[in-house]
């Protein structure tokens, strides 16, 4: 068990090193002739207007909130699904209640218009 995760660590380190090699090779092979024009932001040839990091649409945030609810749910659902056949009828009904609560949550978000893209 511990051996497997130390293997995962080695694998992760190797996977992080590899992109550096590619980018490094590209840096060596490619030309380096920077000039101010070239380093401007590419927005279809027009000069960029105003700040980029501005306030954004609230919808993205609402979806993220609903996502968090359901993603936490999956953390509970996965162990339950693994042991589903061993747990018997009680756990099954328990989980139906759990999902029903979430469905009510989804229904509420739906009703309140959090799922509408405006």
């Amino acid at each position: 068990m511990l051996q497997q995760y130390s293997g995962l660590g080695i694998y992760l380190i190797a996977a992080i090193i590899f992109p550096f090699i590619i980018v490094f090779v590209a840096l060596i092979l490619g030309p380096k002739r920077p000039n101010p024009e070239k380093l401007t932001t590419y927005e279809c040839g027009l000069d960029t207007q105003g700040p980029t990091w501005v306030q954004f649409k609230i919808n993205y945030f609402l979806y993220a909130l609903v996502f968090v609810v359901f993603d936490v749910e999956t953390v509970f659902l996965y162990p339950w699904a693994v042991k589903f056949q061993a747990l018997g009828l009680f756990a099954f009904i328990e989980m139906i209640i759990f999902i029903a609560i979430l469905v009510i949550g989804l229904w509420y978000a739906w009703k309140e218009g959090a799922l509408e893209w405006m």
């Binding site: 590209a26 092979l29 490619g30 030309p31 380096k32 920077p34 380093l39 401007t40 932001t41």
Partner: peptide, 10 residues
């Protein structure tokens, strides 16, 4: 691999 590596100023 043989293109210039550009990091935009902004």
């Amino acid at each position: 691999l043989s293109k210039e590596d550009i990091v935009p100023a902004g």
